[in-house]
Amino acid sequence: MQTLDAAASLAATAPASAIDSLPWLAAALADDRAADRFAAWGRSTVIDENVGAAVLPRALFDELHRRAGLEATWPVGNAGVLHVYGYLLSSTPTPYGLKRERWLSGELERACGLPDGALLPWAGSQTLLSRTTAAASTLLARADSVAEMVDGRAARIAFGPPLADGTAALAYAVDDSIVTMFPVADPAALRDGLGTPRLRWNAA
């Protein structure tokens, strides 16, 4: 956490140095770019719907997309770049804590039925994006996912089986492209309260 905090502090003024200070992150971005893994992900805004402000500095937004080999116009970029890697360096508080907690707390991986540490950013031989894409795709293939149409765009919300404490994993996709993935404490309440279809969780 201290290393991530230091990198997040550096990111606003020296984003390249911030990424290079985390060798596993720099290597993951390069590996995912070479394998074209970002293509499985849709578009997202960096302006968080809960706080009404950007959760990443623009300089970091630009540098992450440059390393991913993607063009992006602030504040809308690739959801994999932003939600998987960008959120690791976000220091903006939200009602649910820091964005990076989904990758560090272990709650999401447990909700996905994965071994402890399976979604730690620096763990294993596969990149975090590769592991997350696989986990989200498994959820989105569930027959009980919620389908929505939003201005002619097909969206899908998928929940995994809840744990004993009620927590479940959620994955969201628009136009068959993954947007985000995170744990939810009360999936039944969230599902019942969805209301009118709209783009959700910062999808663009």
Rank of each mutant, 00 (worst) to 15 (best):
Q2P: 13
Q2T: 13
L4K: 04
D5K: 12
A7N: 04
A8Q: 04
L10A: 06
A11V: 05
A12W: 07
A14L: 15
P15Q: 10
A16E: 00
A18W: 10
A18H: 11
I19R: 00
I19Y: 01
I19D: 01
D20A: 15
L22F: 07
L22W: 07
W24P: 11
W24C: 08
A26R: 09
A26F: 07
A27G: 15
A27L: 14
A27I: 08
A30P: 05
A30T: 11
A34D: 15
R37H: 12
R37F: 01
A40D: 12
S44H: 05
T45L: 02
V46F: 05
V46Y: 03
D48C: 10
N50S: 11
N50F: 12
V51M: 14
G52N: 12
A53I: 11
A54M: 03
A54T: 08
V55M: 13
P57E: 04
A59T: 10
A59N: 12
H65S: 07
H65V: 05
R67H: 06
R67M: 05
A68S: 09
E71N: 06
E71Q: 08
A72F: 04
A72I: 00
V76D: 07
G77K: 08
G80E: 04
H83V: 01
Y85N: 05
L88T: 03
S90G: 08
S91G: 14
T94N: 12
P95E: 10
P95Q: 13
G97D: 03
K99C: 11
K99D: 08
R100E: 08
E101G: 08
W103T: 00
W103C: 02
L104H: 06
S105E: 15
S105H: 09
G106S: 09
L108A: 06
E109C: 06
A111F: 05
C112E: 13
C112I: 00
C112S: 10
G113C: 06
P115W: 01
G117I: 01
A118I: 12
A118Y: 15
L120V: 14
P121Y: 06
P121Q: 03
W122M: 10
A123C: 13
A123W: 11
A123Q: 12
Q126N: 14
R131T: 04
A134T: 15
A134F: 08
A135K: 02
A136G: 11
A136P: 08
A136N: 02
S137Y: 00
S137N: 02
T138Q: 15
L140V: 12
L140F: 11
A141T: 06
D144Y: 13
A147C: 14
E148D: 14
G152L: 08
R153H: 13
R153L: 13
R153M: 09
A154L: 15
A154Q: 15
A154T: 11
R156C: 07
I157C: 05
A158I: 11
F159L: 01
G160Q: 07
G160R: 07
A164N: 09
D165L: 09
G166Q: 09
A168Y: 04
L170I: 00
A171C: 11
V174C: 09
D175R: 02
S177D: 15
M181C: 07
M181G: 00
P183L: 09
P183V: 04
V184N: 06
A185N: 10
P187Y: 09
A188Y: 13
A189P: 03
R191A: 06
D192W: 01
T196V: 10
T196P: 00
P197G: 03
L199C: 10
W201A: 01
W201C: 02
A204Q: 03
A204N: 02
